[in-house]
Amino acid sequence: MSQDIKKATVSELTELIQKGNAHVSFEDAVADLAPNLRTEIPGDLPYSIWQLVEHIRITQKDIVDFSSSDNYKELKWPDEYWPEFVSEIDDDSWNASLDEIQKDRQRFFDLLNDESKDLFKKFEWGDGQTLFREAVLIADHNSYHTAEIVVIRRLLKAWK
């Protein structure tokens, strides 16, 4: 793959992960959320916005860790991917989770931009995954749960 094609592909993947293109970004979905709504669970839904944010953080970190090392330690599904319910979450914990999402996203972008990395070469570990596939997985997973955040905000009457 030429460097120009790789740069264009990485640019598209980065934009897809950051902005979502056809849907709201994660940052927009969590912006200006009243602290008391972070842990509210409307109706019969199984989780709160806080649980979704933490699930995004945990899963994205797991994907980045998997993509960057053959020393990866697999998490137990679903127990280690979903946080337990809590009745409230303080600003420090909320902001730390959002910061970690950004840091892990940047770690992944650094992998994508590493000129020594082939986007389509199968990892020596795993069962056929590539850096390209993991980028699409992050974009797909995060956009799915971002949409759920928006739905919960709408049910809580806390959306635009």
Rank of each mutant, 00 (worst) to 15 (best):
E134C: 12
I56G: 00
I5D: 04
F26S: 06
L156E: 08
D114E: 09
P78I: 04
K61Q: 02
A34M: 06
E134T: 11
K6H: 13
Y72E: 06
F108E: 03
I17V: 04
K103I: 12
H141C: 12
N21F: 12
I149S: 04
D65T: 14
E15V: 05
K61S: 01
I152N: 02
L37G: 01
K122D: 14
L13M: 07
A22L: 10
D110T: 05
P46H: 11
K7T: 15
P35I: 03
K122Q: 13
I101W: 02
V53C: 00
I49W: 03
F108M: 05
W77K: 11
S69L: 12
K121W: 03
I41H: 02
K121T: 14
I149G: 02
N71E: 12
H145S: 09
G126H: 06
D70V: 03
W159T: 10
A22V: 13
A34G: 02
D44R: 12
K73S: 02
K160Q: 14
D79V: 09
K160N: 10
F123A: 03
P83I: 07
L13T: 14
D114M: 07
F85Y: 15
W77A: 07
E115A: 06
E115M: 14
T9Y: 10
I56W: 04
P78W: 07
L33V: 15
H145L: 07
K121L: 15
F123T: 09
D44S: 11
F26C: 11
V10F: 14
F120Y: 15
Y144A: 06
F123M: 03
D28C: 13
L45S: 08
I41Q: 03
P46K: 15
D99V: 03
T14H: 04
K19N: 08
S2D: 14
E100R: 08
F123N: 06
N21Q: 14
T39N: 05
V24T: 14
K6P: 00
Y47H: 11
K6F: 11
A29C: 08
W82E: 12
Y47S: 11
V10L: 11
E15P: 00
V136E: 07
S87W: 02
Y72L: 04
E88I: 10
T39P: 01
I89A: 00
D65M: 09
E80I: 03
D114K: 06
I138K: 01
A135Y: 08
D90G: 04
T146H: 03
Q18D: 08
D62A: 09
R154V: 12
D28H: 11
I17H: 06
W50S: 09
R154S: 14
K117V: 15
L45M: 05
K117E: 10
S25L: 15
L112W: 11
D28S: 09
I56S: 01
E80D: 07
K61P: 04
S67K: 06
E84A: 10
A139I: 08
V86G: 02
N142V: 15
S25N: 08
Q3A: 15
E40F: 01
H141E: 03
T59L: 05
D114R: 01
I5R: 00
D140F: 13
D62Q: 09
S11F: 08
S2F: 01
F109H: 08
S25P: 13
K76E: 15
A34Q: 09
L37S: 03
K7C: 00
R154M: 15
Q102C: 05
